[in-house]
Nucleic acid binder design. Structure first.
Length: 866
RNA sequence: GGGGGAGUGGCGAAAUCGGCAGACGCAUCGGACUUAAAAUCCGAAGGCCCAACGGCCGUGGGGGUUCGAGUCCCCCCUUCCCCACCA
């Protein structure tokens, strides 16, 4: 085979092996050999993957290719770049697989991570593999446990009896976030609520800071707003109502509209409210008990789905408006129970103001309860007087102490009245709940906690970490919900180091999120066996400068990670308040799928192209092309291995980026890849003559210094600088599609002028290409006679003097429509421009009067005529 | 119901500030090279009308601002993602 023919596989393999041998992408830490304190740092991080059994598909890879391009360019620009990769290895799927096969999850994890590592290496990603971490490795989770201990010591971890989501199929407790419409997020199995003793993390203590600190972050606005939504801060008041005939017992409610207090015509408590457990015997009590029983049997799905149709029962109790004149009959308010009031939010009880709250309005209509107007809407807006509900702000009416005040003033007034009488106060409530942090599962970090004979729970000594998982043959949770670790009888028994007394280990494990709450810190100092990471490395590397991943993690991972990070900040372990300075969501890679006329999906491998459409193989039935997620069931999943085998890693990388901006979701189309492959080959032929022996085209072998450029060489130089400027620009929005287009345009100019393409230009173009097509760039760089890696060379700089031509072409418009063109010197004066433009559109101006002339220098002339 | 995106050729997409819509690529068509094909190179191509010169229309739809709108404003439609009785 010809030495000079482009051979993607040989080039990929040669340079991947060389990079590995030379540790080209190894990044030293402060104090290590090779560390250069003068260089600025840049930490570019991918959301590390869960190493599933099915391997990477091209959708996972797009983000990794994007960050790789960033990392490579930053290195060339003189930054010390931290760009690591690892495995988020604990979690349910590995365990489910283990239950089915009887194989230890550790084994399948080793197989899966090996496969992921192999796939990533084939893409030519410049990770510093010496920093690889695996959250299921004891050397890693030792520190997850150590950090949990710090939370525990701070009182941020506590045990509580909570009604939790229990999935019978998975035999586990799930977090609120893992249950969607009453079914498990993973597997879509039905879930029910059930009280169990669980470990909770007090994330609510950080709600305010998690909200406030979003401000300074360079994150997509949509993610910030999702986090704000999730934290759900609302300001209002807690008001205590006395209960008729129940002595000092109070019913407390939370409201954001204390100004509507006098419009409360009934109260509603959640079915779980303790007040309901002490009702006097009688018909009301029986009705309430029946209602509560029915409500608890309902899944959340039913409770929310039936939202349109409100249900409820009168409890027989009356509450008393704390600010009303007791002789006013309106002061006596009936208390109902209804499941539209949620026990988990606020106080689990509300004052119902049907005139000014849509839900209360609906309830009042259904049960024929009185509706009183206490807020007069602005003129022209309909309200209670017109038989509708008005939820906005207006002027208080029918509310003796505040009549005539605006809603805002009225709120203040009511708050001070409540304060004076000690029947309420301002209160801020968050939708965010404490985080249910324990699982009754096998494949997770054991809690580093032990139970003493006196019932106390204490952490094990730091020297006893890690608490490793016992080896089990059966990983299944028990039918009663107890954890699999409870069956490891020898493992459970231990000794309290401080007192020497016997103790039992906690048998719960942490949820899949635990490792991902701090892994970016471990990457900074992955081999440290005295601490999770040293202060010096954190001070140097933190925070993450660019964090790239899917929007799927908008809330949970990013909120949990921020929470832990803030705790670390308070403990003095980290020097920044926030872990991720810039967050970027890559778009989803979708794929084409096909639908038959009835709308059913047809697997892609059953489709053949016919004419300008598609038909199902072996039939004339036309099918329509649609865009969907990549899914096994649609048989439209694309594996990068196959693409790389056919086209090479560089063409694969270029296509991933050329499809569109990194942030956009866009459909994969393997048929488009040859365009990128062709680009790669054309670049190759610009440097290498495939028919002759030399390593380079003869013109490039000569190192000619160009003093003053002219002709084709000048044209190439201009296009090179234009391309470089566009490539530089593409790093702001990570729309590398435009960078690649610019390099293609350069090629279209340089190729026909290859005789004038000089060595200096050739070097700069290879350098520019290096982040995108690193293998071929390295090969050409070497052929240009360099001994060091192109990836350690300096990023070329734009010479602005070549960005513009001396001659510019003006577009000439008449009444805003393009009618002609005029070539002019760049420096041409305005009257010269107008003169030339007039000439260019003479026939369009004939017989008309020019009433106005607009000149945009260097671009356009527009004549407004009559 | 609420929040956030998106809608541009047959397809993926470009288009700093409001200034030549469709760059770049795919597919398509034509040409060169070849015994032939592939590859490669050169060229055409938004739609409609026209023999042609050329003209008209055109960025989901309808209004508006402007000399000029894919871009700004108002209304509407479609679609994707997230949250959904949070008082």
């Amino acid at each position: 085979m010809n030495e000079n023919a482009y051979d993607a596989r040989a080039i990929d393999e040669r340079w991947q092996a060389r990079w590995e041998r030379d540790a080209t992408y190894r990044t030293p830490n402060p104090g290590e050999p090779g560390f250069d304190a003068k260089k600025p740092k840049y930490y570019v991080l991918d959301m590390f993957p869960y190493p599933s059994g099915s391997g990477l598909h091209v959708g996972h890879a797009v983000g990794y290719v994007g960050t790789d391009v960033v990392a490579r360019k930053k290195r060339m620009e003189g930054f010390q770049v931290l760009h690591p990769m690892g495995w988020d290895a604990f979690g349910l799927p590995a365990e489910q697989y283990a239950i089915q096969t009887g194989k230890h999850p550790r084994e399948s994890n080793a197989v899966n991570t090996a496969n992921f590592r192999r796939q990533l290496k084939k893409i030519g990603l410049s990770f510093d593999w010496s920093r690889e971490v695996d959250t299921s490795d004891p050397r890693f989770f030792r520190w997850t446990q150590w950090l949990f201990k710090r939370l525990f010591e701070r009182g941020l971890a506590y045990q509580a009896d909570v009604p939790v989501w229990w999935c019978e199929e998975l035999k586990t407790v799930l977090a609120n976030e893992e249950v969607i419409n009453g079914r498990s997020e993973r597997g879509n199995h039905p879930c029910v609520r059930r009280p169990l003793k669980q470990w909770m993390l007090r994330i609510t203590a950080y709600a305010e800071r998690l909200l406030d600190d979003l401000e300074g972050l360079d994150w997509p606005e949509s993610i910030k707003s999702q986090q704000r939504e999730w934290i759900g801060k609302s300001e209002g008041a807690e008001i205590h109502f006395a209960l008729e005939g129940r002595g000092s017992e109070r019913l407390s409610v939370f409201t954001t509209r204390p100004d509507t207090l006098f419009g409360a015509t009934f109260m509603v408590v959640a079915p779980e409210h303790p007040l309901l457990k002490s009702l006097p015997a009688g018909a009301q009590r029986e009705a309430v008990e029946a209602y509560v029983r029915a409500a608890s049997a309902k899944s959340d799905l039913e409770r929310t789905d039936l939202a349109k149709d409100k249900s409820g029962v009168f409890t027989g109790l009356y509450a008393l408006n704390p600010l009303a004149d007791p002789s006013d009959p309106r002061a006596r308010i009936p208390v109902w129970v209804a499941d539209y009031v949620l026990w988990g939010y606020g106080t689990g009880a509300i004052m119902s103001v049907p005139g000014h709250d849509d839900r209360d309005h609906e309830f009042a209509r259904k049960f024929d309860l009185p509706i009183v107007e206490v807020v007069q809407p602005p003129a022209g807006v309909s309200g209670v007087a017109q038989g509708t509900c008005f939820a906005g702000e207006g002027v208080a009416v029918n509310s003796a102490p505040i009549d005539g005040l605006s809603s805002a003033q009225a709120k203040q007034r009511i708050l001070s009245l409540l304060g004076e009488r000690k029947v309420g106060a301002g209160r801020t409530t968050y939708r965010l709940r404490d985080w249910l942090f324990s699982r009754q599962r096998y494949w997770g970090e054991p809690f580093p906690l032990i139970h003493l004979p006196d019932g106390k729970i204490v952490a094990v000594d730091d020297s006893e970490l890690p608490v490793v998982l016992p080896d089990l043959a059966d990983f299944k949770p028990a039918a009663d919900g107890s954890a699999p670790l409870a069956r490891a009888k020898d493992w459970i028994k231990t000794t309290h180091k401080a007192s020497g007394s016997p103790a039992l280990r906690d048998t719960d494990t942490m949820p899949g999120w635990a490792g991902s709450c701090w892994y970016w810190l471990r990457f900074m100092d992955p081999h440290n066996d005295r601490e999770p990471f040293s202060k010096a490395t954190e001070k140097y590397w933190g925070p993450v400068d660019l964090y790239v991943g899917g929007a799927a993690h908008a809330v949970m991972h990013l909120l949990y990670g921020r929470f832990w990070h803030k705790v670390f900040f308070d403990l003095g372990l980290v020097s920044t308040k926030e872990p991720f300075q810039r967050l970027f969501n890559q778009g989803m890679i979708t794929a084409f799928a096909f639908q038959d006329p009835s709308g059913r999906l047809v697997a892609s491998d059953e489709i053949v192209a016919r004419g300008d459409g598609w038909v199902r193989r072996g039939s004339d039935e036309p099918v329509a092309q649609i865009v969907t997620k990549m899914a096994k069931s649609l048989k439209n999943v694309v594996n990068p291995d196959d693409i790389i085998a056919e086209y090479g890693a560089d063409s694969f990388r270029l296509y991933e980026l050329f499809m569109g901006p990194l942030a956009d979701s866009k459909p994969w189309n393997t048929r488009d890849i040859p365009g990128c492959r062709r680009f790669v080959e054309r670049v190759w032929r610009l440097y290498v003559d495939e028919k002759t022996e030399g390593a380079l085209r003869p013109t490039l072998a000569i190192d000619q210094q160009v003093e003053s450029r002219s002709g084709d060489n000048l044209e190439i130089e201009r296009q090179l600088n234009r391309a470089l400027a566009r490539v530089d620009d593409s790093f702001r929005q990570l729309n590398f599609n435009t960078a690649i287009a610019a390099m293609m345009e350069f090629l279209n100019v340089a190729q026909p002028r290859s005789a004038s393409f000089d060595r200096g230009q050739a070097s700069r173009f290879v350098a520019m290409l290096a982040p995108f097509a690193p293998h071929m760039a390295e090969e050409l760089w070497q052929r240009l006679g360099n001994s060091d890696s192109v990836h350690k060379s300096a990023w070329p700089r734009v010479d602005a003097s070549f960005l513009e031509n001396d001659e510019v072409e003006y577009a000439v418009q008449v009444l805003g429509k393009l009618r002609g063109r005029a070539k002019l010197a760049k420096a041409a004066a305005e009257n010269e421009v107008i003169q030339a433009a007039t000439l260019a559109v003479e026939s369009w101006l004939a017989g008309k009067t020019v009433v106005k002339t607009i000149v945009v220098p260097g671009k356009l002339v527009n004549f407004v005529v009559r």
